[in-house]
Simulated scan of single mutants.
Amino acid sequence: MPPRRWHVTRTVLTAANGTTCAGLLLALVTRTRIRRGRDGVLIAEGWRLRMPPASCFTIGSVIITRRSAEWLLAEERAVLFAHESRHAGQYAVLGPLFWPAYWVACGWSYLATGSYGVHNWFERHAGLEDGGYPPELPLRPWLRRSWLGRLWR
Protein backbone atom coordinates (compact mmCIF):
# COMPACT_ATOMS: atom_id res chain seq x y z
CA MET A 1 0.00 0.00 0.00
CA PRO A 2 1.44 3.44 -0.86
CA PRO A 3 2.58 5.39 2.24
CA ARG A 4 -0.10 8.10 1.98
CA ARG A 5 -2.89 5.55 1.71
CA TRP A 6 -1.49 3.62 4.68
CA HIS A 7 -1.48 6.77 6.84
CA VAL A 8 -5.15 7.40 6.02
CA THR A 9 -6.07 3.74 6.53
CA ARG A 10 -4.20 3.62 9.85
CA THR A 11 -5.93 6.79 11.04
CA VAL A 12 -9.37 5.46 10.10
CA LEU A 13 -8.75 2.05 11.70
CA THR A 14 -7.42 3.45 15.00
CA ALA A 15 -10.40 5.82 15.13
CA ALA A 16 -12.85 3.01 14.39
CA ASN A 17 -11.36 0.55 16.90
CA GLY A 18 -11.42 3.16 19.67
CA THR A 19 -7.70 3.24 20.45
CA THR A 20 -7.21 6.81 19.25
CA CYS A 21 -10.21 7.82 21.37
CA ALA A 22 -8.52 6.15 24.37
CA GLY A 23 -5.29 8.07 23.63
CA LEU A 24 -7.16 11.36 23.34
CA LEU A 25 -9.10 10.67 26.54
CA LEU A 26 -5.87 9.94 28.42
CA ALA A 27 -4.35 13.14 27.03
CA LEU A 28 -7.37 15.17 28.10
CA VAL A 29 -7.54 13.66 31.60
CA THR A 30 -3.82 14.29 32.18
CA ARG A 31 -4.05 17.79 30.70
CA THR A 32 -1.50 17.30 27.97
CA ARG A 33 -1.81 19.61 24.99
CA ILE A 34 -2.91 17.89 21.79
CA ARG A 35 -1.22 18.97 18.58
CA ARG A 36 -1.30 17.77 15.01
CA GLY A 37 1.74 15.72 14.03
CA ARG A 38 2.58 14.26 10.62
CA ASP A 39 0.99 11.49 8.62
CA GLY A 40 -2.31 11.48 10.51
CA VAL A 41 -0.70 11.14 13.93
CA LEU A 42 -1.57 13.41 16.84
CA ILE A 43 0.92 14.43 19.51
CA ALA A 44 -0.02 14.99 23.15
CA GLU A 45 2.81 17.05 24.64
CA GLY A 46 3.78 17.70 28.22
CA TRP A 47 3.09 14.30 29.85
CA ARG A 48 3.92 14.75 33.54
CA LEU A 49 3.31 11.36 35.12
CA ARG A 50 6.33 9.20 35.97
CA MET A 51 5.01 6.09 34.24
CA PRO A 52 6.02 4.97 31.75
CA PRO A 53 9.63 6.12 32.03
CA ALA A 54 10.06 6.53 28.25
CA SER A 55 10.22 9.96 26.61
CA CYS A 56 7.13 9.03 24.59
CA PHE A 57 4.62 6.24 24.02
CA THR A 58 1.72 5.65 21.67
CA ILE A 59 -1.97 4.90 22.14
CA GLY A 60 -3.88 4.51 18.89
CA SER A 61 -2.75 7.32 16.60
CA VAL A 62 -1.75 9.54 19.53
CA ILE A 63 1.91 9.83 20.49
CA ILE A 64 2.17 11.05 24.08
CA THR A 65 5.44 12.73 24.99
CA ARG A 66 7.01 14.44 27.98
CA ARG A 67 8.54 16.97 25.62
CA SER A 68 7.00 19.33 23.06
CA ALA A 69 5.58 18.38 19.69
CA GLU A 70 8.38 20.42 18.09
CA TRP A 71 10.95 18.29 19.93
CA LEU A 72 9.42 15.07 18.60
CA LEU A 73 8.94 16.44 15.07
CA ALA A 74 12.52 17.73 14.79
CA GLU A 75 14.52 16.15 11.98
CA GLU A 76 17.04 14.61 14.40
CA ARG A 77 14.21 12.57 15.96
CA ALA A 78 12.67 11.39 12.69
CA VAL A 79 13.54 7.77 13.53
CA LEU A 80 11.85 8.03 16.95
CA PHE A 81 8.74 9.52 15.33
CA ALA A 82 8.79 6.69 12.75
CA HIS A 83 9.13 4.12 15.56
CA GLU A 84 6.11 5.51 17.40
CA SER A 85 4.16 5.75 14.13
CA ARG A 86 4.80 2.04 13.54
CA HIS A 87 3.18 1.39 16.93
CA ALA A 88 0.14 3.32 15.66
CA GLY A 89 0.07 0.85 12.76
CA GLN A 90 0.12 -2.03 15.23
CA TYR A 91 -2.88 -0.48 16.99
CA ALA A 92 -4.64 -0.21 13.62
CA VAL A 93 -4.29 -3.95 13.11
CA LEU A 94 -4.91 -5.20 16.66
CA GLY A 95 -7.13 -2.49 18.16
CA PRO A 96 -7.60 -2.89 21.91
CA LEU A 97 -6.02 -6.36 21.74
CA PHE A 98 -2.71 -4.54 21.35
CA TRP A 99 -2.60 -3.82 25.10
CA PRO A 100 -2.63 -7.38 26.47
CA ALA A 101 -0.46 -8.64 23.60
CA TYR A 102 2.08 -5.86 24.17
CA TRP A 103 2.27 -6.50 27.92
CA VAL A 104 2.74 -10.25 27.38
CA ALA A 105 5.57 -9.40 24.96
CA CYS A 106 7.06 -7.01 27.56
CA GLY A 107 6.88 -9.75 30.19
CA TRP A 108 8.60 -12.27 27.94
CA SER A 109 11.33 -9.80 27.01
CA TYR A 110 11.95 -8.85 30.63
CA LEU A 111 12.01 -12.47 31.72
CA ALA A 112 14.44 -13.34 28.92
CA THR A 113 16.82 -10.36 29.08
CA GLY A 114 15.90 -7.88 31.82
CA SER A 115 14.75 -5.37 29.16
CA TYR A 116 11.10 -4.74 28.33
CA GLY A 117 11.90 -4.09 24.69
CA VAL A 118 14.77 -6.17 23.31
CA HIS A 119 12.79 -9.40 22.81
CA ASN A 120 9.38 -7.71 22.60
CA TRP A 121 7.95 -8.55 19.17
CA PHE A 122 6.16 -5.18 18.93
CA GLU A 123 9.29 -3.18 19.72
CA ARG A 124 11.40 -5.26 17.35
CA HIS A 125 8.94 -4.67 14.51
CA ALA A 126 8.70 -0.96 15.29
CA GLY A 127 12.52 -0.75 15.10
CA LEU A 128 14.39 -1.38 18.35
CA GLU A 129 17.20 1.10 17.83
CA ASP A 130 14.79 3.71 16.42
CA GLY A 131 12.94 3.49 19.75
CA GLY A 132 16.14 3.83 21.78
CA TYR A 133 16.46 0.15 22.71
CA PRO A 134 19.75 -1.75 22.42
CA PRO A 135 19.77 -4.03 19.35
CA GLU A 136 20.46 -7.15 21.39
CA LEU A 137 21.06 -8.33 24.93
CA PRO A 138 22.16 -11.79 26.06
CA LEU A 139 19.55 -14.16 27.36
CA ARG A 140 19.56 -14.66 31.11
CA PRO A 141 21.82 -17.58 32.14
CA TRP A 142 19.01 -19.83 33.32
CA LEU A 143 17.21 -19.36 29.99
CA ARG A 144 20.38 -19.88 27.94
CA ARG A 145 20.82 -23.28 29.63
CA SER A 146 17.21 -24.35 28.98
CA TRP A 147 15.77 -25.87 25.81
CA LEU A 148 14.18 -22.48 25.02
CA GLY A 149 17.61 -20.90 24.98
CA ARG A 150 18.86 -23.50 22.53
CA LEU A 151 15.84 -22.81 20.28
CA TRP A 152 16.37 -19.06 20.52
CA ARG A 153 19.89 -19.14 19.07
Rank of each mutant, 00 (worst) to 15 (best):
I59M: 13
G37R: 10
G37W: 10
L13T: 10
S61D: 15
E75T: 11
H119M: 15
R144A: 10
L137E: 04
G37T: 11
F122S: 10
G149V: 10
M51S: 10
L137T: 02
L73N: 14
S61A: 15
W147L: 12
A101Q: 07
R31Q: 11
D39P: 05
F122V: 06
G132A: 04
G114Y: 01
I59G: 08
T30V: 11
L151C: 05
C21N: 08
L72T: 00
R140G: 00
A88C: 11
W47T: 03
A44D: 05
W99M: 03
E84L: 11
V79L: 11
G37P: 05
E70H: 13
T11F: 07
L72A: 02
G89A: 07
R35F: 15
Y110H: 03
W47F: 11
L80D: 01
C56Y: 02
A82G: 08
A112W: 01
R50S: 14
I63F: 07
A44V: 03
P138T: 01
A92M: 09
S115W: 00
G89F: 07
R153K: 06
V12G: 13
R5Y: 06
S68T: 15
H87A: 11
V104I: 14
W99P: 01
L24C: 02
P134I: 01
F98W: 08
H119Q: 14
L80N: 03
R140C: 00
L49D: 04
W121S: 11
T30M: 13
A54D: 00
V79I: 07
G95K: 08
S109L: 11
E129T: 11
A15R: 12
G131Q: 00
Y110E: 05
W142Q: 04
G131T: 02
A16P: 02
G89W: 05
A126W: 03
T113E: 00
S68N: 13
L42S: 06
G60A: 12
I34S: 03
W152Q: 03
H83W: 05
R31H: 09
G127H: 03
L148F: 14
G40K: 07
R150M: 03
E70W: 14
P134R: 02
L148V: 10
A16C: 03
C106I: 15
A88H: 08
T9M: 15
V41H: 06
P53G: 04
R67M: 10
I63W: 12
G107Y: 09
L143S: 01
W6V: 15
L25I: 14
E70Y: 10
G107M: 06
R48D: 11
W108M: 13
R86N: 15
